[in-house]
Simulated scan of single mutants.
Amino acid sequence: MKLTVCFSGLSPDPWVQGLQQAFPQAAVSAWAPGAAPADHAIVWAPPQQFIDEQLGLQTLFNIGAGVDALLQLKLPPSLKVVRLDDAGMSVQMAEYVCHAVIRHFREFDGYDADTQAGKWSYRKPRSRADFAVGVMGLGVLGERVAKALAVFDFPVNGYSRSPKDLPGVRCFSGAQSLPDFLQATRVLVNLMPLTPETENILNKDTLAQLQAGGYLINVARGKHLVEEDLIVLIDSGHLSGAMLDVFRTEPLPLTHPFWHHPKITVTPHTSARTLREESIAQIVGKIQALQLGQAINGVVDAQRGY
């Protein structure tokens, strides 16, 4: 069996070594143009040339949670695209989002500004009952985030395409319920997959439906957000701010207004990083299951986009 690793912008060497150690009966190598076809591939943003040359490839294992970049390529109908189920990303995402929500709720940005100015300040405690958090997207990451937020006694709403039932979470599903979900939410966490239907879903019409003083946390994809609309809604006072980890252009250009807006916090796409050892163990396990003719989790439905 042959495995190939094809990454754009990342060194494949640690993955080749790790896969070879975890799966010694396979031949593992990094892809180069003209390389012999493999049976399975581990990829991140591969070029179309890779797909075109890898005739007979059975499976594409994507090392990130989102597969939107892969689905933009011309893929053979028989090629199976598989995403990671978790591999350590969900706990990282829960940490990031809980930090962002609590920082906003407890007004720590304001305290930081005061202490830097040498001011000993006091703010009236807020009521959690007034800070309903809405998690938009209840996949593996979204479900873990919703459960983590509920531990802090925030009212938690969840929105998904198909119905979900999560203890402690008020669940909404389907396009017809999106307005109700937004109107019941003060802090919005976006964890939707990026598809043609969800691109630009965070716009002036949807964000304006959040409760007054709403706050946005975007940890999914930059293309979900209409950036100009966010700035207008913050400057108008309807939204109180945002914490953003993903952007339409990455790295975020130095001239972008997000860098300097006083009510927007920027982080460099670091909310949930792929953990190599956990990912390799999961990928090897899935390949072994496929060898035995067993079904595996994470197979992407190209029509749905996730």
Score class of each variant (00 low, 15 high):
Y215M: 03
W120H: 07
V169E: 07
D68A: 03
D85F: 11
A65P: 12
S8W: 09
Q25P: 00
P251Y: 10
T249N: 10
V97Y: 03
D86S: 12
V169F: 13
R103N: 14
H261K: 04
F105Y: 15
A150V: 00
P253G: 11
G66M: 09
V169D: 05
Q288C: 02
V266D: 11
I51P: 06
S8H: 13
P14V: 13
G213Y: 06
T270L: 13
C98L: 15
F61Y: 15
G142S: 03
L55M: 06
N203A: 01
L10M: 14
L73F: 08
E107N: 13
S29K: 09
A100N: 10
S162T: 15
L79C: 03
S162K: 07
E228L: 05
L292W: 06
T270E: 10
S271R: 04
V246D: 04
G174L: 11
E199C: 11
L233I: 02
H238T: 08
G298K: 09
Y306A: 01
L57M: 07
A184Q: 14
G18Y: 05
F181W: 09
W120V: 00
R170I: 04
A242M: 10
I102G: 02
L84C: 03
T255I: 03
L239C: 12
K2E: 07
H99Q: 12
D52E: 14
Q282L: 12
F50Q: 00
H104Q: 13
L292V: 00
Y96N: 04
G88C: 07
L254K: 15
K223P: 01
V133K: 00
E199I: 13
K80I: 08
